[in-house]
Simulated scan of single mutants.
Amino acid sequence: MRHGSLMPFLTLSHVTTYSYRNPVSFGEHRIMVRPRESHDQRLISAELTITPEPAQVRWLHDVLGNSVAVATFDRRAKDLVFDSRVRLEHSPADLESVHIEDYARLYPFTYSSEDMPDLLRSIERQHHDPLREIDRWARRFVDVSGQTDTLAMLSSMTAAIRREFTYVPRPEKGTQSPIETLAKRKGTCRDYAMLMIEAVRALGFAARFVSGYVYSPTKRDQRTGGGNTHAWVRVYLPGSGWVEFDPTNGIVGSRGLIRVAIARDIYQAVPVSGTWAGFPGSFEDMTVSVDVTVDEPAETNAQISNTQPSVAPPPRKVKA
């Protein structure tokens, strides 16, 4: 896939703070905030600081290659803070960069026998649709003549969600089912992503959930969904591989999008998960602050260092 000439340097700040009325103890926490390194995302530095300092932090790659920090604790505290600071070079791709093999340019098509075994689990539906509501909605984008341009169809679906649904931020955990989102005609970026994933899977495409960050490349090119983590979709298209579709902003390509975690289902891509133990009612508040600064693309020849982050964790719910 060809990438645009603009390769901005970005500084990411992601701070999550959990507050308690009384000191509590913390169980094991898993943290997924380190951006994935690839040909279009090069990490210059990454630091993740946890307060209170954990007893141990170890790093691993999960089944889909996401970087995960696992932290354990040996002290109690009233506050738990994750402070992630990342600097990276981004070489985004846009709609014009998408190349599709001849056999897949018109829908329907069949993935190659070489690719299909690895794509099957990403084609499987994850949510029940007994009345086939998602199927009917997805079919509206298919040309009844039988000559449906694959990329145009997926782009139209992405734009339709942006145009026809109302974006409503919801900081608390949880995601609507695709059927709920379709019925309510509103939701968060997570809800939009899960609706589109189920819709394209209903059409036979392999799709995955993506969690990461969104930023506005220019003042004219403003993006919705900042201030927190962002979610979108990847669809596998022969010739370009996994292509980004952001239904919240109605865009195709990775311009303005920084990948952190990729998963078959949203529950595999939770930024922070873990447990705490203490008196019932101790949990007081959780705040999340995400800030992305776009720098001048000046350091093209900067030496890239793969700094292994140090980490910070959060809670899930009370364990008596």
Results as ranks from 00 to 15, higher is better:
254 S>E: 08
111 Y>D: 04
73 F>W: 11
96 E>K: 13
122 S>I: 04
85 R>I: 02
34 R>T: 10
168 V>Q: 09
40 D>C: 10
314 P>R: 13
157 M>A: 15
252 V>A: 07
167 Y>A: 10
218 T>K: 13
296 E>I: 14
168 V>L: 14
160 A>P: 07
46 A>W: 04
297 P>C: 10
48 L>H: 00
313 P>T: 14
33 V>Q: 12
294 V>A: 07
115 D>M: 13
18 Y>T: 08
222 Q>G: 04
119 L>V: 05
300 T>I: 13
76 R>V: 12
69 A>E: 03
310 S>P: 03
127 H>K: 10
23 P>W: 14
46 A>Q: 00
27 G>D: 03
259 R>L: 12
275 T>Y: 06
200 V>S: 03
153 M>I: 06
284 E>G: 09
133 E>M: 12
131 L>D: 05
226 G>T: 14
182 L>D: 03
148 T>F: 08
298 A>W: 05
65 G>L: 08
151 L>E: 00
157 M>V: 01
70 V>N: 01
168 V>I: 15
237 L>V: 10
13 S>I: 09
294 V>M: 06
15 V>P: 00
71 A>F: 03
297 P>L: 11
309 P>G: 08
88 L>I: 08
173 K>P: 02
96 E>H: 11
63 V>D: 02
213 Y>I: 04
205 F>R: 03
165 F>L: 11
206 A>G: 00
43 L>Y: 04
86 V>W: 01
19 S>L: 15
267 Y>V: 09
24 V>A: 09
33 V>P: 02
